[in-house]
Amino acid sequence: MNQDEYFSVHAGLTINVERLADGESLPDESAFLLEIPPLFRVASECSGFEEGIEQSLGKLAQKDNQLLLDYLKAQNNKINLLLSFVLSQQDNPALRYTTETFGASQLTFTATQPFQVGRYTRVKLFLDKPSAAVYCYAEVTDCREKGDAFEITLKYIRLQEDDQDLLIRAALYVQQKLLRQRAQQRTENQ
Results as ranks from 00 to 15, higher is better:
L154Y: 03
E24A: 12
R169P: 04
K78Y: 02
Y135V: 04
K129W: 02
V123S: 03
K177S: 14
Q75V: 01
Y6F: 06
L83S: 05
M1Y: 01
D91C: 08
Q89W: 13
K177V: 06
V134F: 03
I168A: 05
E50I: 03
D128P: 09
A61L: 13
D28M: 07
R41M: 06
I53G: 01
V174D: 02
L107D: 03
N2P: 12
P130S: 11
T14C: 05
Q160W: 04
N2H: 10
L72H: 01
E45R: 12
T14Q: 08
E188R: 12
V86L: 15
L33E: 11
L167T: 04
G118I: 06
S131G: 11
L172E: 13
V17Q: 10
N189Q: 14
C46V: 12
N16R: 02
L67Q: 07
E29V: 14
I53D: 01
V86R: 14
D128G: 15
F85L: 11
L95P: 06
I152S: 11
V42Y: 14
G147F: 08
L127C: 10
A149I: 06
L81E: 13
T112N: 12
Y71P: 01
R158L: 04
Y135E: 02
V9T: 00
S25Y: 06
L69M: 02
S25F: 08
V117N: 09
T108P: 11
N2E: 11
R182I: 08
T108E: 14
V174C: 02
I36H: 08
N77Y: 01
M1Q: 01
L107P: 04
A111T: 09
T141Q: 08
A171S: 15
Q75W: 01
L13G: 02
V86C: 07
G23T: 06
Y135Q: 02
E54R: 11
Q62I: 07
A183H: 09
R180Y: 04
